[in-house]
Design a protein around this nucleic acid. Structure first.
Length: 559
RNA sequence: UGGGGCGUGGUGCAGUGGUAGCACACCAGACUUUGGAUCUGUGGACCGAGGUUCGAAUCCUUGCGCCCCAGCCA
C-alpha cells in the first residue's frame, strides 16, 4: 500500500540487535493475549499489528492465547468473535492457539512449589482487610496475621481451597514478597482466589482461579515466548513477573512495554462501550459508530487501512492522543485505489430537461475507477427526467459556487452540459423541481466558446433504485470524551443521519453486503449487512475530502 | 506527596554531540468531466533554567508538566 519506509521503532531495534548478537538462537516468538470478555477494538489492532508484525519480519511466529483466568467475566462467544476479528484484520496464528486455562494444573503445581519454598502463604484476610493492610502510595503495608503460617499448614489449606472446602472469598493464596515495597505490585500479591463458578472451558473442574499476574508470566514461559510485548501499565508488574520466574527457576521471556494508541473522539473502555450498547445509544457491538473491529468492519473500514494507520502512527512510549483524521485518511487512501465509482443521489431533486425527447433513453459510458484502468467501464441510462442533489442547485448562489443556478450551466457527469432555465417552488418557497435545457453537442467534448467548471452527479428517474443511506459521523463531539465531566454529554447527537429517500444507479442493485463503493462527490460507502436487492442500505464509511464544504464553513464563520 | 514511565511543529513519530526530518492536519497554487485523486510550494517545534563543549534536542545538574499504580479485574 504505502511504500514510505519508516525508521524501525525501538522494539524492532532491540530485537534486531539481540538477533545480531545471537540471543534467542534466532527465535522471535510473541503472543497476543486477549481476555475473552469483550470485543476487540481499534486499540487492540495496534497490539495485534505489533505482536504479529514483529515476528513476521524476523521469521518468527505469534501465538494467540486467551487469558481466561476469570470465569465470571468470560464467555465462549467472545472467544469466537475475537478469533474472527483477528483473522479479518489479516493475522493468522496457525496451530498456535492456547488458553491460560490449559495451564491451570501446572500453575497449581508451581504454586505448591512456592509454598514449599516458603514463598507463598494462604491468607484469611477479607478483600477489604487486604486493601487496608496493603498501605497506600506513601505508607508501607503491614503483614497479614497469616503471613507466617507453616509450610505444612499452607500446603494443607491450599489443597482444601482447591477441594472446595471454603466459600468464595474466604481465603487467598498470596506471594510472600515485601509488604513495604514502594512498588505496590510487590506487596504480597494475591495469586489465587476462590470462585465457585463454572469456567467456559474447564467447567467445574476448578473453584480456585489464578490471578492474571500469577498466570501471565508463566504462560509466556511455558510457550517459550521470547518477547512479551505489552502496554506501559505493565511496566510496574515486570519486577513481579521476574520474581515469580526466578522463584520457580524457569525460562524468562523478555518483556517490552509500549504506549497504547489513544484515538481522539473515541472511547474504548469496556465499561463505556458496554454502556453504549446496553443503553441503546448505539445499535450493538457492531454498530458502525463503534470503535470495535466489528463496528469498523460494518462501517466499511478495510483491514489494510487499519494496519496502515498503526504503521504510520509508529510505536513509542509517550502517552498520546492520535487524531482520528489520520485513520480516516488511511481509509480514503485505500478505498481510493479500489472502490468502484457509482452515482447516487442522497437528497433528490427532480430536474426535467425540456429539450430532451420524453421517451428517449441513452446508454452512456462511465468509468468505474479512474485510479484503476483495469476496472473498466459500465453503461448508465440517461433520460429526460433526472434526480440530482438538492445541494447542487441554488437560486441565489454565493460566489465561487460552481453548480446549478438559474441561468448557470453545469456538466452532468458522463453526460451533457445543461443549463437551468427555471425552478418550481412549493408553498413554503422551497425548490421542488427545476427545468433545464441540454446542449446535444457536449456529450464527450467541451465547447470551445465557454468554460464550465462544475460537474454534478445524477441518476435517471425511470431507472433509479431507491435506497437507504446512513451517514455516520464521530460518535463524540469532544476529542477527549474520557476527560469530560460527563462523557455521555459529549455524544454527538448527529452521529447518525438516516436518509431513506435516496436514489442510486441501477448497477447498485447487485451490491453485496460489505461491498465497498464510492458515490461520486459524496464519499465512500459500504453495503450494510442488512442490505438486500429490494431493500438497499448503504453506510457512509467516510466522506470525500470536501474543499467546497470547507469554503462554506469558513465563510459562515466570517459572518 | 512513594514507585514507574514520558516531554521534538496542531497531532503522531524520526533524529542520541556537528546545519532539526517525515506523515497527517493547516495555508497557497497547478491540474481536473468527482470542489475527488494527483502534483508543487509556504508557515510553524526540541518543557524551563544553569552547566560541560569549538559545537547540545542529544551529555550533566536542577526545576516544571503529563500519564500509570493502592481489584480477591486483565
Amino acid at each position: 500500500m504505502s511504500n514510505l519506509d519508516q525508521a524501525p521503532d525501538f522494539i524492532r531495534t532491540i530485537v534486531a540487535e539481540e538477533l545480531a548478537n545471537g540471543k534467542w538462537q534466532g527465535r522471535v516468538i510473541t503472543r497476543f493475549p486477549p481476555e475473552p470478555n469483550g470485543y476487540l477494538h481499534i486499540g487492540h489492532a495496534k497490539a495485534l499489528a505489533i505482536d504479529f508484525g514483529l515476528p513476521a519480519e524476523f521469521g518468527g511466529r505469534c501465538h494467540l492465547r486467551f487469558d481466561d483466568t476469570n470465569p465470571t467475566k468470560e464467555e465462549q462467544e467472545y472467544v469466537d468473535q475475537i478469533m474472527a476479528d483477528i483473522r479479518w484484520l489479516g493475522f493468522e496464528w496457525g496451530a498456535h492457539l492456547y488458553y491460560a486455562s490449559d495451564y491451570f494444573e501446572q500453575l497449581y503445581q508451581w504454586a505448591v512449589q512456592l509454598i514449599q519454598a516458603g514463598k507463598a502463604y494462604v491468607d484469611d484476610l477479607t478483600a477489604e482487610e487486604t486493601r487496608d493492610y496493603r498501605g497506600t502510595l506513601t505508607e508501607p503495608g503491614k503483614p497479614s496475621p497469616c503471613r507466617e503460617r507453616s509450610v505444612a499448614e499452607n500446603l494443607d489449606l491450599f489443597a482444601r481451597m482447591r477441594a472446595g472446602e471454603f466459600p468464595d472469598g474466604a481465603k487467598t493464596l498470596r506471594a510472600k514478597i515485601d509488604m513495604a515495597s514502594p512498588n505496590l505490585n510487590l506487596r504480597d500479591p494475591v495469586m489465587y482466589r476462590i470462585r465457585k463458578a463454572a469456567h467456559h472451558r474447564t467447567g467445574d473442574a476448578w473453584c480456585i482461579y489464578p490471578m492474571y499476574d500469577w498466570a501471565h508470566g508463566q504462560s509466556d514461559s511455558i510457550e517459550g515466548i521470547t518477547h512479551s510485548l505489552c502496554s506501559m501499565e505493565y511496566e510496574d508488574h515486570r519486577p513481579l513477573y521476574d520474581w515469580f520466574l526466578d522463584a520457580l527457576g524457569i525460562y524468562h521471556p523478555r518483556q517490552i512495554e509500549f504506549a497504547r494508541g489513544n484515538l481522539s473522539h473515541t472511547v474504548v473502555s469496556k465499561r463505556k462501550l458496554l454502556q453504549l450498547v446496553n443503553e441503546g445509544i448505539v445499535a450493538g457491538w457492531d454498530d458502525p459508530r463503534m470503535p470495535t473491529l466489528a463496528g469498523l468492519r460494518r462501517r466499511g473500514y478495510p483491514p489494510e487501512a487499519i494496519r496502515e494507520f498503526w504503521k504510520r502512527v509508529g510505536v513509542g512510549k509517550t502517552p498520546n492522543l492520535i487524531q482520528v483524521g489520520l485513520l480516516e485518511h488511511c481509509v480514503r487512501e485505500e478505498l481510493n485505489q479500489r472502490a468502484p465509482r457509482m452515482l447516487a443521489v442522497l437528497r433528490p431533486l427532480k430536474i426535467v430537461i425540456d429539450n430532451y425527447p420524453a421517451d428517449q433513453v441513452e446508454q452512456l459510458v462511465a468509468v468505474n475507477n479512474p485510479e484503476d484502468p483495469a476496472a473498466g467501464t459500465r453503461q448508465i441510462p440517461f433520460t429526460r427526467e433526472l434526480w440530482i442533489e438538492q445541494t447542487d442547485l441554488m437560486e441565489n448562489p454565493p460566489k465561487k459556487y460552481f453548480r446549478l443556478a438559474p441561468g448557470a450551466e453545469v456538466r452532468l457527469r458522463y453526460a451533457y452540459l445543461i443549463k437551468c432555465v427555471s425552478v418550481v417552488k412549493n408553498e413554503r418557497g422551497e425548490i421542488v423541481e427545476a427545468h433545464c435545457t441540454y446542449d446535444p453537442t457536449t456529450l464527450n467534448s467541451n465547447p470551445t466558446d465557454r468554460k464550465v467548471k462544475g460537474t454534478i452527479h445524477w441518476v435517471a428517474v425511470p431507472f433509479a433504485r431507491p435506497a437507504e443511506i446512513r451517514l455516520y459521523d464521530h460518535l463524540f463531539l469532544s476529542p477527549k470524551p474520557d476527560e469530560a465531566e460527563d462523557w455521555k454529554a459529549q455524544i454527538n447527537p448527529h452521529s447518525l443521519e438516516r436518509l431513506t429517500n435516496c436514489y442510486v444507479e441501477p448497477a447498485l442493485a447487485a451490491a453485496q453486503p460489505g461491498a465497498h463503493v464510492q458515490f461520486e462527490r459524496a464519499g465512500y460507502f459500504c453495503a450494510d449487512t442488512d442490505s438486500t436487492p429490494t431493500q438497499l442500505i448503504f453506510n457512509r464509511t467516510v466522506s470525500l475530502r470536501d474543499t467546497w464544504g470547507k469554503i462554506e464553513k469558513a465563510e459562515a464563520a466570517d459572518k
